[in-house]
Nucleic acid binder design. Structure first.
Length: 488
RNA sequence: GGCACCGUAGCCAAGUGGUAAGGCCGCGGACUGCAAAUCCGCUAUCCCCAGUUCGAGUCUGGGCGGUGCCUCCA
């Protein structure tokens, strides 16, 4: 198996520390606000990696933290006139709602920073003892210059950084690049006892403390968004390695950014989307499908048309599943085809290639349809093959974290949602179909086609078969093709 | 200014040395009263230039274009 390691900038053969086991730590969220699409991207990316590792037979210990003490939390709580605790609880609750909608599996551990204060203090003491950190008026700073490898992960030269350093230099620091491990308590802020008086942790120390406590001084994989490479992960290395003397992490993995309509998602540009906003408009499963269709390291662009396309793709997947399951006798199962499974596992082994995995899934969907077509025509045989393809479909979809709903239920629920958006009802559609069937029986095709065209304008797509007429609802954008709406 | 990354068909997007995955759109066909769905077929030599190599989208150098990080950020 190969993993792209940020540390070396190359895909490397993965060698776990303990055979058959993987210890993975991924930076979760600072819970001061609702989750945005960047969190969704990171969440889904590492969820896919987590599932892939398990599918490849590794026993995975997956840690994803909550940072629940931080400047932003304190500021936001003050703005809203609530306690930090209230704010944190609220946002952890909505985190689970959002990530649950995106079908994220529960990690092995989900530590909160405030539960690891003693481990942080111990780590800081070790750093002070070793002369890598120093106290200054109740604050403790890490002395970046005393860690020779500083900049290795982000490939930055410490002197270049010095030149670019911002003007508001903290007088209490010996060097502008030094960063806080511990901050002296201020009024109205959360605080804990420490050997240097009351205070609270700095931003980076929690991840070093929690990963060490739960995974040890040296573990396999550490992940997060690309934006965390510097300074967060660089500082983590300085802290952890400074304390234990060994490299804390063997493989650093970083997911790419989210863009909105080709611009970086940011609050100042006004193109900032929460997960809640997006899944109110598009099916969360389609959002997940879209996220996982792009390689985790590449940037991903969000726009209505792309998500609508993902919805159409999801419709197709479920429609195929439903079609096949109707043909398959109850209890008929078969092992997934070996060749197919081998290709599948190979895509996972190649740095978790989600795009390639979705491509493979598309091939399987086509094969299933071919199989169904043949069965329909010849009315015999192909059952074993169909069952085998469905098994393959389920295995692949399960790693991607999609197609977990009952196909019929999915298709019906989507119908209701889209009917409501169109302001029409099932009763109306059924009524029109009745009328049309009467016209068809009379061979009055002009009337029949008129009814069909009118329904289509409302997003209703009719499908005639010899004995019945079924219908589906188009997604919003597909039925208004060409107007390029891109508002997400 | 420093440091990274990216530039593949109308659009989205895989692919780190051997003659370009997949999806959307489009076109042709099978099927259909006509459609829809489904299936079959068609649609690129990979920003430009030079080099390394038997062979490069894939490596090296230069150029052009775009993005990110250097400050809180998934």
């Amino acid at each position: 198996m190969k993993i792209f390691n940020t540390l070396t900038g190359e895909k490397e053969e993965f060698k776990p520390i303990a055979k058959g086991e993987v210890k993975m730590y991924v930076c979760g969220v600072t819970v001061y606000d609702r989750c945005h699409m960047g969190h969704a991207r990171a969440g889904v990316a590492f969820d896919f990696i987590y599932r892939s590792l398990e599918t490849l037979g590794y026993k995975v210990t997956y840690v994803r933290n909550f940072t629940d003490v931080d400047d932003k939390i304190i500021n936001r709580a003050n703005e809203r006139n609530i306690s930090c605790d209230e704010l944190v609880e609220e946002n952890i609750k909505t985190f689970y709602e959002d990530m649950g909608a995106l079908n994220l599996k529960k990690p092995t551990h989900e530590p909160r920073a405030t539960q690891y204060i003693s481990q942080m203090l111990k780590l800081i003491e070790e750093l002070v003892d070793k002369g890598l950190a120093y106290e200054s008026k109740g604050d403790i700073f890490y002395s970046v210059r005393s860690f020779p490898q500083y900049g290795k992960l982000s490939k930055k030269n410490i002197d270049d950084l010095e030149e670019g350093a911002r003007v508001n230099i903290n007088e209490d620091k010996r060097d502008p690049l030094d960063f806080a491990l511990w901050k002296k308590a201020k009024d109205g802020e959360p605080k804990w006892e420490s050997p240097w008086g009351e205070g609270r942790p700095g931003w980076h120390i929690e991840c070093s403390a929690m990963s060490r406590e739960l995974l040890g001084n040296n573990f396999d994989i550490h992940g997060g968004g690309k934006d965390l490479v510097f300074p967060h992960h660089e500082n983590e290395i300085a802290q952890s390695q400074g304390a234990c003397g060994c490299a804390p992490v063997n493989y650093w993995m970083h997911n790419g950014f989210v863009n909105i309509n080709k611009e970086k998602m940011s609050k100042s540009l006004g193109n900032f989307f929460t997960i809640k906003d997006v899944i109110a408009k598009f099916d969360p499963e389609a959002v997940r499908l879209y996220l996982v269709s792009t390689h985790y390291r590449s940037p991903i662009d969000f726009a209505d048309e792309y998500l609508a396309e993902a919805e159409r793709t999801l419709d197709r997947f479920y429609a195929t599943k439903l079609r096949a399951s109707k043909l398959l006798p109850d209890g008929e199962t078969a092992k997934a085809d070996d060749k197919l499974m081998e290709r599948f596992l190979d895509t996972l082994k190649d740095d978790f290639n989600g795009a390639m995995t979705v491509a493979l899934l598309n091939e399987v969907i086509t094969s299933i349809n071919v199989c169904c077509d043949k069965f329909k025509k010849e009315n015999s045989g192909h059952i074993k093959n169909l069952a085998s393809l469905l098994s393959a479909l389920d295995e692949i979809a399960s790693v991607l974290g999609i197609l977990y709903r009952d196909p019929a239920e999915y298709l019906e629920s989507v119908k209701d949602k889209r009917l409501a958006e169109r302001g029409t009802t099932r009763e109306h559609v059924e009524e029109q179909i009745e009328k049309r069937n009467t016209a068809k029986a009379d061979k009055d095709y002009v009337t029949a086609d008129k009814i069909r065209d009118d329904l289509r304008k409302n997003g209703v797509l009719l499908k005639d078969s010899p004995n019945e007429t079924t219908w589906v609802m188009m997604t919003r954008v597909s039925s208004a093709m060409g107007n390029g709406a891109q508002s997400v």
